[in-house]
Design a protein around this nucleic acid. Structure first.
Lengths: 232, 232
DNA sequence: CGCTGGATTGAGGCCGATCAACTTCAGTGG
DNA sequence: CCACTGAAGTTGATCGGCCTCAATCCAGCG
């Protein structure tokens, strides 16, 4: 059952560790962690669903292949988040997942996950909390304008990139192309809106480094307020 | 704890019934059902999250108020589905929910829900399945064209309106306005695309009554294939 | 019968896509 | 150290799909 790949090893520090003794976990082969190089692919669509993945650190993107060979990005995953819930329903993975940075994930076989949940009411509560959070992520994808979606995306990143604190300055882990793909905009539009935000002193951006100068204005844009005054 | 409204009564037939004895359920005040008239509102945003709602039959829409007083529809809910997961994360309801038809919902206080889940591994499994399903719903909202989104919406409806079987003919429970609002299109665009679909013999539509003449073509459109040949 | 709200259809404007040129950057090897 | 190269990012000009505004049609109903 346990893979023999060399980059697997036992996991000693993740959200599942506080629950159950080490021995219990070893006996059940509850989980194991795995490091991914940049661009390395984690799970493939159509493969049988077996495990959830808890991201220890790093960033992943999930995507589907489109008819014309292009990819369609469905989400980004950061440290502390869990990947794979969508597959419970269908029984097989719907997306591919690729690492955007060097990433460490903790693989938890679904059967063990269910047992763990059952034996730990606190963990069950926490997992439902995390799933609920997941349900709300990406709700801004349906915003009407490019500025709204990108503003919401930046706020989202600032919250999710660093689990403990909200930072005003951070490094974009993905390309303009990937941001555009996720927000259903082109890379050119992303670039243009970044430039507008910068010109209006809402953010400062230099390549991958972003600084949110006026997070509250970003929030207002994301919420659909200040439509014209800022955009021009 | 139990509301005194007259239209409350004990629930004898829903997905939670098979689990636990009737006596257990009564002692815990696990759940109760409630009938809603058309346009009646169920839960209000900012109110403290306390219960999940299992839809027995009928249709609900969830929506947020926008700045200009307009509403923003976040989802539709049909028989067998559960409403309220999003609120676990924030601790208060994010949306209002309004009945589109006469609707019966089963209210399950979250604390009891957690207990039920813990005491019934099978129920736990089923709930995770339902949540996973929920995560996939509405993924078509990010499709690029109006025809793609509306085609996907029709397929979605045909599956979710009747839990047991997929019907090719059904009644739209919501207005063009509501469909457009949900898909981030205008009612006019919905109307125009319906007309195009009808002209191309993909569907037959008369007011609220829809018949999917070529469901497979609808699927192709939803998937982004057949872009030009059908649209013109 | 007239009224009212939803649905349909048409004409014009705007936002983002497309296509293209140019710049910048990261990686490579001489 | 620097020239070379390909990928990523920026910026401009044009095109097209959806929105806006408006008129008309239609069904349900007092």
């Amino acid at each position: 059952m346990r893979s023999s790949l060399s980059h697997y090893s036992s996991c000693t520090s993740c959200m599942f560790t506080p629950f159950g003794t080490t021995e219990e976990q070893e006996n059940l082969a509850i989980k194991q962690y795995r490091t991914l190089e940049r661009k390395e692919v984690l799970c493939l669509p159509k493969h049988k669903f077996q495990s959830l993945y808890v991201i220890q650190h790093g960033v992943l993107k999930t995507y589907q292949a489109e008819v014309d060979g292009k990819e369609l990005i469905r989400g980004f995953y950061f440290a502390g988040e869990i990947l794979g819930y969508e597959a419970i329903y269908t029984g097989h993975y719907l997306f591919s997942a690729a690492a955007l940075t060097e990433t460490v994930v903790c693989e938890v076989p679904y059967e063990n996950f269910l047992e763990l949940l059952h034996s730990n009411p606190e963990l069950q509560k926490r997992i439902l909390y995390l799933i609920s959070r997941q349900l709300n992520i990406g709700s801004y994808l349906v915003s009407s304008t490019a500025a709204q979606r990108l503003a919401a995306f930046l706020i989202d990143l600032s919250v999710r990139l660093h689990p403990s604190e909200i930072k005003r300055e951070f490094i974009l882990p993905m390309s303009r192309q990937d941001i555009g793909n996720y927000l259903r905009l082109t890379a050119e539009t992303i670039s243009r809106v970044f430039s507008r935000f910068q010109k209006n002193k809402i953010i400062a951006i230099n390549h991958k480094k972003v600084y949110l100068k006026q997070p509250e204005k970003l929030k207002q844009i994301a919420d659909g307020l200040l439509a014209t005054p800022i955009l021009l």
